[in-house]
Amino acid sequence: MYAYRAPPLPAAPPVRLVPMVTSQDRAVFASLRVLPDQAGFVASNAESIAEADEMPWCVPLGVCDATNGGVVGFVMHALDPDEGRRWIYRLMIDARFQGRGFGRAALRATLAILDRLPRSERVMLGVDPANLVARRLYAAEGFVETGEMLGDELVMRRVLQR
């Protein structure tokens, strides 16, 4: 009997997720942009940071290249107060750094944080159905499409490691 062995997941560059402490930090991360044809897939970082200011359950983090120290992206996770589920509300990598594995690394680093938090049996996220690159990334990292829609976004779920 032949046993299928899945190929190893691709390596990702090391990243650090950092809190945005100063107004200068916030301005730097708010200035990051996706490619023009991706703009409809994710809210701007400035909007996300403002959202986190209004919703204390949101945790905005900057994504930095751990090797070179540069700023490469933004992620925000939350424990939804209405449903008690963990969500990744935002994940974006600046256009200048896309295609290098930083998105995968940021996702993995975020999941590592969520794995350690209480009430974290699974994590949810929403993705624009037309964003095929993001959908493939999330599926490769263990997310499954639930068939649910939240507004215009397809909901995906992943069981966290314990």
Score class of each variant (00 low, 15 high):
residue 108 R to N: 13
residue 125 L to C: 06
residue 24 Q to N: 07
residue 141 E to M: 13
residue 154 L to R: 14
residue 29 F to Y: 15
residue 144 V to F: 12
residue 32 L to M: 07
residue 71 V to Y: 11
residue 157 R to W: 02
residue 9 L to D: 03
residue 89 Y to C: 15
residue 137 L to F: 09
residue 44 S to Q: 06
residue 66 A to E: 11
residue 30 A to H: 01
residue 124 M to N: 10
residue 68 N to P: 02
residue 150 L to S: 14
residue 127 V to F: 02
residue 133 V to D: 07
residue 85 R to W: 12
residue 64 C to M: 13
residue 63 V to S: 04
residue 63 V to Y: 02
residue 146 T to I: 05
residue 148 E to N: 05
residue 91 L to F: 07
residue 19 P to S: 14
residue 38 Q to W: 11
residue 145 E to H: 09
residue 14 P to A: 13
residue 2 Y to F: 13
residue 149 M to F: 11
residue 157 R to P: 00
residue 83 E to Y: 09
residue 10 P to M: 07
residue 99 G to N: 07
residue 135 R to V: 11
residue 38 Q to G: 08
residue 73 G to A: 02
residue 117 L to Y: 00
residue 130 A to E: 12
residue 126 G to P: 08
residue 73 G to Q: 07
residue 62 G to P: 01
residue 152 D to F: 10
residue 88 I to W: 00
residue 81 P to L: 14
residue 48 S to E: 11
residue 16 R to G: 02
residue 154 L to W: 04
residue 107 L to C: 04
residue 145 E to G: 11
residue 142 G to L: 13
residue 108 R to Y: 06
residue 33 R to T: 06
residue 125 L to D: 01
residue 67 T to D: 11
residue 52 A to N: 09
residue 117 L to W: 00
residue 97 F to D: 00
residue 122 R to Q: 11
residue 158 R to K: 15
residue 41 F to E: 08
residue 67 T to K: 08
residue 140 A to S: 15
residue 92 M to F: 04
residue 16 R to M: 04
residue 11 A to I: 05
residue 16 R to S: 08
residue 61 L to K: 00
residue 128 D to K: 13
residue 86 R to C: 14
residue 101 G to N: 03
residue 33 R to V: 00
residue 84 G to F: 10
residue 82 D to E: 15
residue 92 M to C: 08
residue 38 Q to I: 07
residue 57 W to I: 00
residue 47 E to K: 02
residue 22 T to P: 05
residue 119 R to C: 13
residue 85 R to N: 12
